[in-house]
Design a protein around this nucleic acid. Structure first.
Lengths: 338, 338
DNA sequence: GAAAATCCGGAAACCGATTTCCGGATCTTA
DNA sequence: TAAGATCCGGAAATCGGTTTCCGGATTTTC
């Protein structure tokens, strides 16, 4: 019973509550925050008045005293993308539980815009900042000497004194290879994305380190059609292989389609493992696709936790890697017969 | 040259600037905001001092006077999903350009959490709130009689006095059918998602109104496998059709795969149109898929604009629909020969 | 050269909370 | 009954800005 819809009124202030309860504003503050020594009866009277008026203490006024805003900024330096979303959700999850609100800023690949957002966040006196991006790679610090703690998630800072959290992509690739070996595959090929990407390099290197690949890594693009094309090339050259480790689920799906078309059974003739564990791809694939999960939501939560720790005076500088997880599905389920 | 990395210092206040420039705080405020009458020399001196100290006016202190926070809340009542993301990006785009920052809140389908976030936003004195969700449907107002303007985007409020913006899904379906008719198709079937969804109902009704469908709408689920299955059923019953209008791109893709497997050429024998224009699906489909785009990013921008208008005293109550756009690709490109 | 107009910038109130300090009322205790 | 301890709650300072009001210095005008 506050006001009728459409009618906008001035927010209730602590003075309104004080007047209704017949006390001073200081007393209201103490009553609602459980501080000072007040008669229980007074406390109740104030609480009731606040309740009746729907009083919500102005956060801006409050933060003026405390110096804390219980607010953090999240800057995606690249455009918000498929990878940054789970990260954001994870971070928001952890921060929201800790009573902190999140300012969302999309830098759109534009350094000017990025710096503009940064200034906005500083004016708002955020308690901390999370920097993220569309792709895993390292980048220069967003600005040196910021007065608030900063955590880089998914993207990492080139300055080792900054705190960065990244998925252990190499470890994920190793897990994929080990799994393929465990189900009896030995002639493994690797089909992946553009050679110049950081992720492709790391994953390919880790795969090559874990096993003697049956062929050099095949670099291309992050698309199904490249997956189909790559399989076509392999079959045309008569290469022998019993497993394909793919740099993405889209590539893997292209591979699956091309293999089926060529009469090779998955997983009986050729086992398949993808990367990213993108459910719409991995589950729609025929058969459902084994894949390496980057665990981005957990990474987002971890980033938020690190930020909270830094805000509370316990920073953790350096590059922290978080393990990936292999999700096994049908595409690599069956051990090679014999 | 402010401070070295890792060293956290108290933020610079207006008093610091005043001291350095040798003037009073009031003068600093006037100088930096271009108010009052000051000697140009004084103004420059203050500006220079502010610059040197890296002064950024505390937004909280400022909003205490003005009553405005230049902040809006965005609540996704459902979990953040594929549809709410372009919406958020669009809204953030429009608001960011207008100097406003966005608080992101993910309600996670939990009404308690949702109300908790709402209270948080009210304490922070946001200038307005955008409510959105994972799926297009209508829902009860988030709370009656809020002291700030609220705009519902994608989801709509059941209270007609609220301002809601939704895509014109029926119009989009009609465009799809008209297009199929225009390329010479007449025996059109409709394969779509769960019958109880609001979207399926609206789209199916609009399709049926635009043409005599060759078969009753086929309700199932939002998956590729349902698309494949539906085509299997149609072929098994010997139904005659030269076009399939699908309720989603995933369904359409399943249809495309099943049709190809059955030896029906797309688009020559059967034309295909999907819904959502989800690029990863529509472009990976063989052949690339025509689809109805909900224009969610534009919808997000429009929602933000409506909210800004409401904040500035020009609310636009009621349900506003925004047109969808048909994207024509190969899957429906060729007119039926003859 | 004196009165009036103009210019510039400082002092202080104010926004809405929190917190410290202090004094009046009540209760103990001798 | 007087002195001291305890309890309760109000007054006021404070956070960091903005804005109003006002007075001293300079310039204009006759």
């Amino acid at each position: 019973m506050t006001q009728t819809a459409g009618k906008r009124s001035d927010p209730v202030t602590i003075s309104d509550v004080a007047a209704l309860a017949g006390v001073s504003v200081g007393t209201v503050s103490k009553a609602l925050n459980g501080r000072g020594s007040l008669r229980p009866e007074t406390r109740d009277r104030v609480r009731e008045a606040a309740e009746r008026l729907g009083f919500q203490a102005n956060a801006a006024a409050r933060s003026l005293n405390t110096g804390r805003t219980y607010t953090v900024g999240m800057i995606t330096t690249d455009t918000i993308g498929r990878f940054s979303i789970p990260l954001m959700i994870g971070a928001e999850d952890s921060l929201g539980a800790g009573q902190m609100s999140v300012f969302l800023c999309d830098g759109r690949d534009d350094p000017i815009r990025e710096q503009y957002y940064l200034d906005t966040l500083l004016r708002r006196r955020v308690d901390g900042i999370i920097v993220t991006g569309r792709r895993a790679r390292s980048r220069p610090p967003i600005r040196a000497g910021l007065p608030v703690p900063v955590v880089y998630a998914f993207v990492s800072s080139t300055d080792p004194r900054d705190c960065s959290l990244v998925p252990d992509e190499g470890g994920g690739a190793a897990k994929a290879i080990e799994h393929l070996l465990a189900v009896g595959r030995s002639r493994i090929v690797h089909v992946t994305g553009p050679e110049h990407h950081h992720s492709t390099q790391v994953r390919a290197a880790a795969a090559a380190a874990a096993v003697d690949l049956a062929a050099p890594p095949m670099f291309g693009e992050w698309s199904e059609s490249w997956g189909r094309h790559a399989i076509g090339m392999l079959l045309a050259t008569g290469a022998e292989f019993d497993a394909v480790f793919c740099g993405s689920d889209q590539i893997a799906r292209g591979c699956a389609d091309a293999l089926r078309l060529a009469g090779r059974r998955v997983p009986d003739d050729v086992a398949l493992v993808g990367f990213d564990n993108w459910d719409v791809m991995a589950l729609a694939c025929q058969p459902p696709l084994s894949s390496v999960d980057l665990e981005l939501q957990a990474l987002g939560r971890a980033a938020a936790d690190r930020l909270l720790a830094a805000i509370n005076g316990s920073p953790a500088p350096g590059l922290h890697t978080h393990p990936c997880r292999l999700i096994v599905r049908e595409s690599s389920a069956a051990p090679l017969p014999g």
